[in-house]
Design a protein around this nucleic acid. Sequence first.
DNA 1: ACACTATTTATAAACATTACAAAGTAAGAA
DNA 2: TTCTTACTTTGTAATGTTTATAAATAGTGT
Lengths: 144, 144
Amino acid sequence: MAEEKLHEAIDAMKNSGVRITPQRHAILEHLIQSMSHPTADEIYKSLEGKFPNMSVATVYNNLRVFKEIGLVKELTYGDSSSRFDCVTTDHYHIICDDCGKIVDFHYPGLDEVETLAEQVTGFRVGDHRMEIYGKCPDCQKSKH
Amino acid sequence: MAEEKLHEAIDAMKNSGVRITPQRHAILEHLIQSMSHPTADEIYKSLEGKFPNMSVATVYNNLRVFKEIGLVKELTYGDSSSRFDCVTTDHYHIICDDCGKIVDFHYPGLDEVETLAEQVTGFRVGDHRMEIYGKCPDCQKSKH
DNA sequence: ACACTATTTATAAACATTACAAAGTAAGAA
DNA sequence: TTCTTACTTTGTAATGTTTATAAATAGTGT
Ligand SMILES: [Mn+2]
Ligand SMILES: [Mn+2]
Ligand SMILES: [Zn+2]
Ligand SMILES: [Zn+2]
């Protein structure tokens, strides 16, 4: 399943004329296998073992390339650094205020809100984003 | 109306034991009168004339103070710098992809989504955020 | 006026991200 | 396979926003 997704991603790169380098392969693999929403630096650190000489700029460069060909989405929250999501199908996120955990969460698109916004503001709507904030089950248990 | 809002803000500061300084007064006044969502640096630059010696740190410090006593909200988008909103009643924003314009937009809270997310994820939900992206009327006209 | 504390200022530091140039490499052509 | 070339990686410097720090300043209550 993850294997399959990686192959699809590599095909997408070939079709876009983007070269497949060992670094790109590893970054994609990490994104797909981790099943999380890592920061550029987390990816960089997780690949230190395999690529002791890889530059952090390479991670940033390639995440941008992946974004451009639609392989990943960038998630920008208030905190310092962006996170990256290789699940590009529409979904929302719910985020723990205490520990920062990010969990995927599906819901039909908010078409009504988009339509109303279009009517009220005169904008031509293209997209929207939504996140929900709260306390995750683990953090609810700890009596802090 | 803006005058009134400023007075309310000053009262809130008094009640919170926060001193009223000329800088704080000016920052609040700018936030209220501009009717926009300025960055810290935009506020800083707009007050250069009146306060040639004001430090940019003062702007950041005071925006944090205002946030703590609930006078402003910080808006963090993907781009580099935070924006600040002195309208603290619940509302959403629609943002132009081309020129960055931010327009307020009212809609009943998305209670359904919050409830569903709570059930599906086990999180205890506290809050949510949503923005809509599109092309503003002005940018639609220009044939770029 | 005095004392006390909050605030401002100037500056340096932190941090994520991008820019740049030189060295290295993937991929197609010969 | 070897060659060629444009793309990629690397190392480092630069950028831009925000925070930390310490000394100077200014509100506030006595
Ligand atoms: Mn996700
Ligand atoms: Mn607003
Ligand atoms: Zn948590
Ligand atoms: Zn616009």
